[in-house]
Design a protein around this nucleic acid. Structure first.
Lengths: 330, 330
DNA sequence: TTGTATGCGTTATCAG
DNA sequence: CTGATAACGCATACAA
């Protein structure tokens, strides 16, 4: 591995000149440029990014922390992040936390030690205090999940309203016994989606009954199990709103096992609009989050913070959409 | 952001001593240790990883290049990689190349500039020459996809045999007109799976007919389209072997649109055993690759290279399994 | 046991 | 336009 020194020697110039040629922001005579470029080519020299980042205290790199790369929902967001990042000369590196606090801590440590210029956090497991402290020290944007009242820029959708609309759709179809499959965790979206569910019921004069609420962890299996439990209820629910598409698909398979037809015996609504939602039979009614745009926006906000710094905290709410398909309507 | 110098001053010792306390491999008196630890805590000091890596020419970091994080197949491999890496004190960072040569180059550049100690490559777009040169310079292991005859350690399954077994299964069910949905790209697995398909046909005395072969890009949509095309053939195929589960699912939906029943009118076999394969109706017959173990093994081989170096090139073939489900057998 | 000095590979400042 | 040199933050050989 050759260094800038080797190049300088070979070209018969100083390292400063080599650096100038590489970075191209000062005047260097055409002949010297030629000599240096030749030497670089011959030695197959590439600047050491560690040295450069150390010197410039800037790495042109962004960390993206996410709980689970297997979730297609995040994959689409990441695409948006990457496109904006690359357009602006940044590279992004994905950090799979597996919802594991220890792993997340390790990546946060890298971030704090300037391995990257900033980070986008999805579904972070950190406490409010930790987050606040982190955001003071390093450019950070939260995407999708966030905590209320923190001085941290975030982008998300209106989860309460989205759930409200989904459940209203089911009510509009004439359903009275509408179940809910949610998630029991520290995430704000979980609370908000439950609240939206309750508000829609209440406004329609339907009593909210916790018995008709079951909880999972967003996965197919947990949705399957939750639905099993709900279908044992008497009277059986005729519709269910799930806070993730994966759980909704699990719920449908659960109903199928009981020889119930979807949507005739059970209407199912999901959340996220992952692309499997339309590959499925029946195709899935769901809330579509603008995943790609969420990613783009998060990255743009982060760039603002990185480049300006003392910009004010922004809470950005993006539009969602109820997509009606076969799982609720024939 | 405080540095080792700040800590040294605050504790009234030299930076060397601070460094010793942090790394804990030399003798330091208990009292000094205490003083230093106190200073570190008060300043909330964390070593700058760039400086450290630059000095040690070792980063304890691994890059994983993959073409598409949205593909659940890779997600599972990554889990294996991460588990082994973490167990050995390494962190891994995911680089999504999007099958884009330019993006891949950028990440390779980071690797070469010692931002990481090594890399695991999945479905690399690099040429044989580029790969060979890279492997000479940096610890590298290829996972799943590789090129024959290169001096680069890799781990994969026997793709030819797997395809052979899958097609043999279809033949065993009595099918004669067996179609193939493959992928036209530079990857060895594409060629090998086609070869396995041909060998199975030939051994069974069925003539190989290129007309019954269509090609896609592993995606749902491309599988859907390819099947449309094959179903227009006369006589219509009664079975199809697809080189990815996503394409197989697309093929099934295509058949459904033509009011064909799977497996009665068309038997479908996929490849990969992504977990959606068993969520689907009908559940999908497929080849299961040991994804998690592939990841673990790739990482272990990489660690060997990193820690020993002039170890010889290893070509590791792992076991696969034909999993028979509803899409081929009632 | 501790401190001094050097170098990892860059870029930036300051002379010339 | 170019060169010498300091500095980024850290770890280590060598001295004390």
């Amino acid at each position: 591995m050759s260094t800038i020194n080797d190049v300088a020697k070979k070209a018969g110039v100083s390292v400063a000149t080599v650096s100038r040629v590489i970075n191209g922001n000062s005047k260097v005579s055409p002949e010297t440029v030629e000599k240096v470029k030749q030497a670089i080519a011959e030695l197959d020299y590439r600047p050491n990014l560690l040295g450069r980042a150390l010197r410039k205290t800037k790495s042109e790199r962004i960390l993206v922390l996410l709980p689970n790369i297997a979730n297609p929902f995040y994959a689409e967001i990441v695409k948006g992040i990457e496109d904006v990042a690359n357009k602006n000369g940044y590279s992004i590196m994905l950090c799979n936390t597996d919802s594991n606090q220890e792993r997340e801590k390790k990546y946060i440590k890298m971030l704090k030690s300037r391995l990257a210029d900033g980070a986008i956090l999805m579904a972070s497991e950190m406490t409010s205090d930790e987050l606040t402290e982190l955001a003071q020290e390093v450019p950070v944007v939260q995407c999708c999940e966030y905590k209320v009242g923190l001085p941290i820029t975030h982008v998300s959708i209106d989860n309460e309203l989205a759930a409200y609309k989904a459940v209203n759709h089911l009510i509009g179809l004439g359903h009275k016994k509408i179940a809910f499959i949610g998630a029991k965790n520290q995430f704000l979206s979980s609370t908000l989606r439950l609240e939206g569910y309750i508000r829609a019921l209440t406004e329609a004069g339907i009593e909210y009954d916790p018995q008709y609420c079951a909880y999972g962890d967003y996965s197919y299996k947990s949705g399957f199990r939750a639905m099993k439990q709900l279908l044992a209820l008497d009277p059986r629910p005729t519709a269910v709103f799930c806070v993730s598409d994966m759980m909704a698909i699990g719920a449908i398979r659960s109903a199928m096992e009981e020889n119930l037809s979807v949507p005739d015996d059970l209407a199912v609504c999901g959340f996220d609009n992952i692309y499997f939602a339309k590959m499925f039979k029946p195709t899935l009614t769901t809330i579509s989050q603008p995943m790609y745009d969420l990613g783009c926006t998060a990255m743009e906000l982060l760039l603002n913070i990185i480049e300006d710094r003392d910009i004010e905290t922004i809470h950005y709410i993006m539009e969602h959409e109820l997509i009606i398909r076969e799982s609720t309507v024939k």
